[in-house]
């Protein structure tokens, strides 16, 4: 935890400094003796810097109880985190292709991918659920709630290829 806190404090200090630098460049439109647009951001800069320095110092002077058990637990945690990382990568790819391929075409493989990440191994089960649930969502939102989900620029082309 100590290392995590120090990392967090350093990252936040850097971010606060960048935030402060941008605040410096903001236009200062204000009446005399009244707070302008930069007033509140400056309060934030001061608070964030103060608290992150406090976190840094308190973590730096705290001893960590790094037992063998904790280390073993950390290794298990790392393996679990890998699956989480795959999910984030999959999510990012899904959001990149979604505007181009449209909701139906992009969601089916994304849904199937997440099902596999959830240790689902039956191919027919994955296929039927990913297609069925995606279509269900599409029709519920499109026709039930009038929410026009992205069709994508390649939607028609891909549909013509499939059909």
């Amino acid at each position: 935890m100590r290392r995590k806190n120090i990392t967090a404090a350093i990252v936040i200090i850097v971010m606060a400094m960048i935030y402060g630098l941008i605040t410096l460049q903001l236009p200062t439109r204000s009446l005399p003796d009244t707070p302008g647009p930069t007033f509140f951001p400056w309060i934030n800069v001061v608070i964030i810097l103060f608290l992150s320095v406090l976190l840094l110092l308190s973590s730096a002077f705290t001893k960590e109880n790094g037992s063998q058990d904790t280390k073993r637990k950390d290794e298990t945690q790392n393996n679990q985190n890998l699956r989480g990382l795959w999910a984030i990568i999959g999510f990012s790819i899904y959001l990149i292709i979604l505007p181009n391929f449209g909701f139906l075409i992009s969601t089916i493989p994304f849904f199937a991918f997440l099902m596999i990440l959830f240790s689902e191994k039956r191919p027919l089960y994955i296929l039927s659920n990913s297609i069925g649930i995606t279509f269900l969502f599409y029709f519920v939102f499109r026709h039930g709630f009038n929410i026009f989900l992205p069709q994508g620029v390649l939607h028609d082309v891909v549909l013509r290829l499939i059909l």
């Binding site: 999510f91 899904y94 959001l95 979604l98 969601t107 994304f110 849904f111 997440l114 099902m115 959830f118 240790s119 689902e120 659920n129 990913s130 649930i133 995606t134 969502f137 939102f141 929410i147 989900l149």
Partner: peptide
């Protein structure tokens, strides 16, 4: 209800 169906549905609902 299997998590393998529930959680991907939640992910899609977040995007929608």
């Amino acid at each position: 209800t299997p998590r393998s169906i529930l959680m991907p549905s939640l992910a899609v609902l977040c995007v929608v």
